[in-house]
Computed example of a mutant assay.
Amino acid sequence: MSETVVVDEHAEVLALRQKVDELETQLEWFRKQVFGQKSEHAKPMDVNQLSLFAQQVEQAKQPYPLPNKKLMSKPMPERKTRNQMRSLAAKSKPLRRQLILPMSNASVRQAGS
């Protein structure tokens, strides 16, 4: 009877050790998931994966083209002060002249005729 008890205890100890190993493996996996490096950071980018922003990246790498001198407009003139504007306006006012038209007697009607 003692032999069967020892064998049963030995089998139970082996089963418990196997269970402890399984639980330690699970615990290590959970620790990596919570505290370890994430898989997104560890995996290198797939070379065959297309990028959503490939065109924008290529445009950003190219140097910005300088404008063509023929297309450039004339530079803005200097801004004039209020007094300069007033003097220009005074100079540019047309002179008031009386317009004298010749009158013919035939074209004038007399009142009451």
Rank of each mutant, 00 (worst) to 15 (best):
S2N: 14
S2M: 09
S2C: 08
T4F: 13
T4L: 13
T4S: 15
V5N: 06
V5R: 07
V6D: 13
V7Q: 12
E9Y: 09
A11R: 13
V13M: 10
A15W: 04
R17I: 02
Q18K: 14
D21L: 06
E22N: 13
E24M: 10
T25G: 14
Q26I: 01
Q26N: 06
L27D: 11
E28A: 13
R31L: 05
K32Q: 15
Q33G: 06
G36A: 10
Q37W: 07
Q37G: 09
K38L: 05
S39T: 03
S39P: 02
H41C: 03
H41A: 12
H41Y: 05
H41D: 15
A42P: 03
A42M: 12
P44Q: 05
D46Q: 05
V47K: 15
V47T: 09
N48R: 12
Q49T: 07
Q49C: 05
L50D: 13
S51K: 08
L52E: 15
F53C: 01
A54L: 05
Q55P: 00
V57M: 09
Q59H: 05
Q59M: 11
A60K: 00
A60Y: 02
P63E: 05
P67H: 03
K69H: 04
K70N: 10
L71F: 04
S73P: 02
K74D: 09
K74W: 02
P75W: 01
E78G: 08
E78P: 03
K80P: 00
K80A: 07
T81S: 15
R82P: 03
R82E: 09
Q84N: 14
R86D: 01
A89C: 04
K91Q: 10
K93P: 01
P94Q: 06
P94V: 04
L95V: 14
L95H: 02
L95R: 07
R97G: 01
L99H: 08
P102E: 10
M103E: 08
A106C: 01
S107A: 11
V108C: 13
R109I: 04
R109K: 14
Q110Y: 04
A111Y: 10
A111I: 13
G112N: 11
G112F: 04
